[in-house]
Amino acid sequence: MGECDDRANTASGQRGDEFAALFGRHARQIYAYILTLVPHWADAEDVFQETSSILWQKFEEFELGTNFRAWACKIAYFRALWFWQRQKKLDVPFSEEFFQIVAAESLAQREALEEQHRALADCVQRLPERDRSLIDRCYVGGTTIRQAAVELNRTPDAAYKSLKRIHRELFDCVDMILRSRSES
């Protein structure tokens, strides 16, 4: 192996490190951004997969020092649109105008959303143990509501209603924290 090869490998290794650092830092935000455009979990999963792959493939084009998140979200946006273009018209829940508006709003709210993310952790901690278990079962355990309900000795209907209530409580809690912070 020649010196040139060594240099090339070292360079590509560095590039990989850079990508890893940036992607690791922004993966959550990219996923959340995609979820606003593709509201169904399974579909958002597909788009996130594809976006991750494209980000790496195109990383050579990314200029270090510029905004990785904005660059990634741009790619995610087009990937999401492409996803909807592949769907049957009847299966597309919203218009393109809707997606444009929501995408712009996501970017405009990015700082507030970061604050929300931090506040959410506090709010989840404030949940009663029973509610936290339900959320954890559902979001982490990979179980269906029905199964989570059985495991927690609740009816599916009760679990479903509880999840709805918990989401609302968390939203209100986050709202309250953000307001109190902005007032103080």
Partner: peptide, 16 residues
């Protein structure tokens, strides 16, 4: 809308 969807996405990461 945007905040709600981000909240749902964040719930995963926090729970995880």
């Amino acid at each position: 809308y945007v905040r709600y969807m981000h909240l749902c996405a964040d719930l995963f990461w926090n729970s995880k």
